[in-house]
Computed example of a mutant assay.
Amino acid sequence: MYHEIAVNCFRYFGFKRLSEVDQLTIPEYELLIEAHNLHMVDEEYRRHEQAFLNYQVQAQKPAGRNKTRPVYNTFNKFFDYEKAIASVKKKKPDNPQERFKGIGRLLRKGGKIHG
């Protein structure tokens, strides 16, 4: 088991020495493995999203008898960068107290933030 843990630490987590592996607890190792596996799912999601976008950008629509034309004839019609940036900026709370409003309610109810 130690051998497998050490190999995974060197292979996936950038460990360079066995002393780093020796300092790792089993719960920490399990957390690293879970995080790595979730990262792999995220990477797979991105690949599938890219494949879908590659297909979508090639979409055609009728343009007369037996003719088609691209649905997106410019990149900006396919992805409006400025609109996406504006959408992100719009969601930022103006009042910092509003940002933590939900946490305050949770603490007043005696809930835990993590753990």
Rank of each mutant, 00 (worst) to 15 (best):
D80N: 13
I33R: 10
P93D: 06
D94R: 12
G104P: 08
Y55M: 03
S87G: 13
E20C: 01
K91L: 10
F79M: 12
D80Q: 03
V57W: 01
H36E: 10
N37M: 10
A63P: 01
E44V: 06
Q58K: 15
F100Q: 11
R69A: 14
A84F: 02
H114D: 10
D42H: 09
N37E: 13
R105F: 12
I85C: 15
A84Y: 02
L53F: 03
F79T: 05
V41S: 03
T74L: 02
K77T: 04
G110D: 08
L107C: 13
Q60M: 13
H36V: 05
T68F: 02
E44Q: 11
H39F: 06
K90Y: 05
I33A: 04
Y55A: 02
G64E: 00
N37I: 10
A59M: 04
N66Y: 07
S87A: 13
F79K: 14
R65H: 03
E44H: 09
E34Q: 12
S87M: 07
K101N: 12
G104R: 15
Q56C: 03
L107T: 10
V71W: 01
G111I: 10
L32A: 01
R99W: 11
R99T: 12
N54C: 05
D94L: 13
N95L: 06
D22W: 14
K112Y: 11
P93V: 08
Q58V: 02
D94E: 11
F52P: 02
V41W: 02
P96T: 11
G115E: 11
R47K: 13
G64M: 00
L107N: 11
Q23N: 14
R47W: 04
Y72N: 07
I26W: 07
M40F: 00
K101Y: 12
D94S: 15
R69K: 14
K77Y: 04
Q97G: 05
